[in-house]
């Protein structure tokens, strides 16, 4: 009896040590994740002179308005223009991706057609294809048809989003029973109407998750917009951020931190509200960039 108790006791003791290790490591990692953003946000409110004296501080300064003023007098970095372009492109991309991916997934799920298997294989095959591979041909074609600096060239490709189709098909398999579709048919509803008024509402949860990823993915995309957009008025947010690397900001530290904060803050705020869906979305779909 006694020895048993000792064993039990030592076990809990080792559990406590184990638990403490976990918390220490996790706290260090959490600090590592947050620290760069904290420095960024705090330094956005400090003057360049203060930052030069001490680059790290956890106490906000009072130079936010001054930094905003300096940033707006230098004309290269225009966050509002970038935000507007990014919003237009990301919102359209999201709508197209989610709607057409659902439609395509439904075509695979609900109907038997000859080339279905080959088609699904194709989707799996191109799922992993990065833009790097098609970029030269895409750019040259756009150039020849005078379609560079045209936002549609960044928006329309979203109609074919294989990753999303794959996810939507998996979701349909678990969530939609063909009985519902059959009964709609008996009621005389057309196939397209059945999809829009019966299938789409059932897919709402999956659509929400995929919408978040489509939006964030498009918002953060730097490669394609950089290649296609030459005029400053068409620059998206990531291209605008990249301008902060330029020489005229070299000594204006307050400005750089402020500019970076302006691009990161909207994402951080959105993330704070939607983190639950995002984390569970990653778990479900293992979305990888």
């Amino acid at each position: 009896m006694a020895s048993n108790q000792v064993a039990l006791h030592s076990k809990t003791k080792s559990d406590i040590a184990f638990k403490t290790t976990i918390y220490i490591v996790c706290t260090i990692l959490a600090i590592l994740s947050l620290f760069p953003f904290v420095v960024m946000l705090v330094n956005a409110t400090r003057s360049t002179a203060q930052i030069q004296a001490h680059a790290v501080s956890l106490i906000p300064g009072s130079s936010l308005s001054k930094n905003i003023k300096i940033l707006s007098t230098k004309k290269t970095f225009q966050p509002l223009v970038g935000m507007k372009n990014s919003l237009i492109i990301s919102a359209s991309t999201t709508i197209l991706t989610v709607y057409f991916a659902s439609l395509t997934a439904y075509a695979i799920f609900a109907y038997d057609w000859k080339l279905k298997k080959a088609f699904f294989g194709l989707i799996m095959g191109i799922m992993m294809l990065p833009g790097t591979v098609t970029m030269i041909g895409f750019y040259r074609a756009c150039y020849q048809f005078h379609l560079t600096d045209n936002k549609l060239m960044l928006i329309l490709p979203a109609i074919a989003a294989p990753m999303t189709v794959f996810f939507m098909k998996q979701y349909l398999e678990g969530a939609l029973s063909m009985d519902i579709v059959e009964s709609a048919r008996i009621d005389g509803a057309g196939e397209f109407r059945t999809f829009n008024s019966i299938v789409l509402p059932i897919m709402k949860p999956a659509m929400a998750t995929q919408a978040i990823f489509a939006f964030v993915g498009s918002w953060n995309n730097y490669f394609m917009p950089r290649i296609l957009m030459n005029k400053q008025k068409n620059y998206t947010m990531p291209i605008m951020v990249a301008l902060l690397n330029g020489d005229i900001y070299k000594t204006e530290f307050g400005c750089i931190y402020l500019g970076l904060s302006m691009t990161a803050l909207p994402l951080i705020i959105i993330y704070l509200f939607l983190s639950k869906y995002i984390v569970s979305g990653v778990a479900l779909g293992s979305v990888k960039g």
């Binding site: 953060n220 730097y222 951020v241 690397n245 750089i256 970076l260 691009t263 990161a264 951080i268 995002i278």
Partner: peptide, 10 residues
């Protein structure tokens, strides 16, 4: 979730 361009310059 943060733009890679922002992270790089940060």
């Amino acid at each position: 979730i943060i733009t890679a361009a922002t992270v790089a310059i940060l």
